[in-house]
Design a protein around this nucleic acid. Structure first.
Length: 376
DNA sequence: GATCCGTGGCA
DNA sequence: TTGCCAAGGAT
């Protein structure tokens, strides 16, 4: 059931007019990706910002542009270079799709991004909302976005109380969003303004309705319960998974393997993973050197609590032993390689793995206490 | 349609 | 401690 946005019935400024005027005066204008209408830069920002907050993206965006200044440079780069710059941002399929998209733009579109949302949405990693954002920002196309911010703003303004977990209802909201669009001249400010409203005033928990340009026209504010929107039933049951990891070191080098192309951290470099501590111990039993269990720690994902159990094995020196070890390692992990600690940043590592390896001094210190029989 | 895919911040 | 989720998309 949709209560009507009352500004329309009252003959006052339309929702779009209010949002456009507010954005131009009070919205955000200094974000790095707002200084341009270059589709490459806008596209990069939109992909990085998917399910990711602005403050997190800022540093990644600048580093990425410095290394890949245009779509041709990105398309020509090795995927490992892309993943290395994406490491820590999460949702790594975005990085792989980003790379594939750049290559498609070069190969299929003459090196230029398509100028309309419909064609943009055919490219890897660009869905309906992202395509619309690029088309609106770069080409003034009259097309609606519907991300988390806009869902919140529109459901509140319209009093749209139907469950967005139901596809039919979300489709209805898309249609409503399209019906609210201003003329093309206002598309940039309108699109940006909806997101600015959702990110600043119209927040999830404590919306600042007093400062909102929609004022008393907002149905949710009239009802006095803006926090009740949007309605979205969720059954997020978090599961647990155990990761037994082998930190295999030899001198200043560490053995890294490429993770499978599917599943968590797909395609990134990480430590060899085992099904159990026993399986890991069986594998290293015949290798020269010393084995130490490191402290277990938890890494929390949206749907998953990961329990990471790292075991460190320091391979002893010795030409014969090293040759045998390398042969077995190469056989067991064909895509593995010895990486110098100083070169770790050149590899895309999952955040908890980078954190683990970066805390080596701390962990080794803790381990020494264990060796001496002292409590941690 | 339901599930999967990261990380960090916040209450 | 736990839940929630942010400029979503692919399968």
């Amino acid at each position: 059931m949709v209560a009507e946005y009352t500004g329309l019935a009252a003959g006052g400024p339309s929702l779009a007019e209010r949002v456009v005027a507010w954005q131009r005066q009070h919205g955000r204008h200094a974000l790095p990706w707002q200084q341009t209408r270059d589709p490459y830069r806008v596209w990069l920002s939109e992909i990085m910002l998917q399910q990711t907050q602005v403050s997190t993206v800022l540093g990644y965006y600048e580093r990425f542009l410095e290394r890949f200044p245009d779509v041709a440079a990105l398309a020509a780069a090795p995927i490992d270079d892309v993943l290395a710059l994406w490491a820590g941002l999460g949702y790594y399929s975005r990085a792989r799709n980003l790379h594939r998209c750049a290559q498609a733009v070069v190969a299929d579109h003459g090196g230029a991004f398509p100028h309309n949302a419909q064609t943009l949405a055919t490219l890897p990693g660009i869905g309906r909302s992202t395509a619309a954002a690029i088309a609106a920002f770069c080409f003034d196309e009259r097309v609606a976005i519907l991300d988390g911010n806009v869902k919140r703003v529109l459901t509140r303004a319209l009093g749209f109380g139907d469950d967005l977990a139901v596809a039919r209802h979300e489709k209805q909201l898309w249609a409503l969003a399209e019906g609210l669009l201003p003329d093309s001249e206002g598309m940039v400010a309108y699109t940006q303004g909806l997101m600015d409203l959702g990110a600043t005033l119209c927040s999830q928990r404590s919306p600042r309705c007093n400062a909102c340009p929609l004022g008393g026209e907002c149905v949710a504010k009239q009802q006095g319960r803006p926090e009740d929107y949007p309605v979205k039933t969720r059954k997020l049951k978090r599961s647990r998974r155990q990761l037994v990891l082998l930190w295999l070191a030899r001198g200043d080098f560490i053995w890294l393997v490429r993770r499978p192309t599917t599943g968590i951290w797909a395609g990134l470099w990480s430590l060899p993973e085992f099904d159990s501590v026993e399986a890991l111990e069986d594998a290293v039993a015949g290798w020269p050197g010393s084995t130490q269990a490191l402290p277990t720690f938890t890494h929390v994902l949206t749907h998953l609590d990961l329990s990471l159990e790292p075991v460190r094995h320091q391979l002893a020196d010795g030409a014969n032993a090293n040759a045998n070890a390398d042969a077995e390692l190469g056989s067991r992990w064909p895509e593995g390689q010895w990486v110098a600690y100083r070169d770790l940043a050149r590899h895309g590592l999952p955040a908890p793995i980078a954190k683990l390896l970066g805390r080596s001094d701390e962990l080794f210190a803790a381990q020494e206490f264990v060796d001496q029989g002292e409590p941690l």
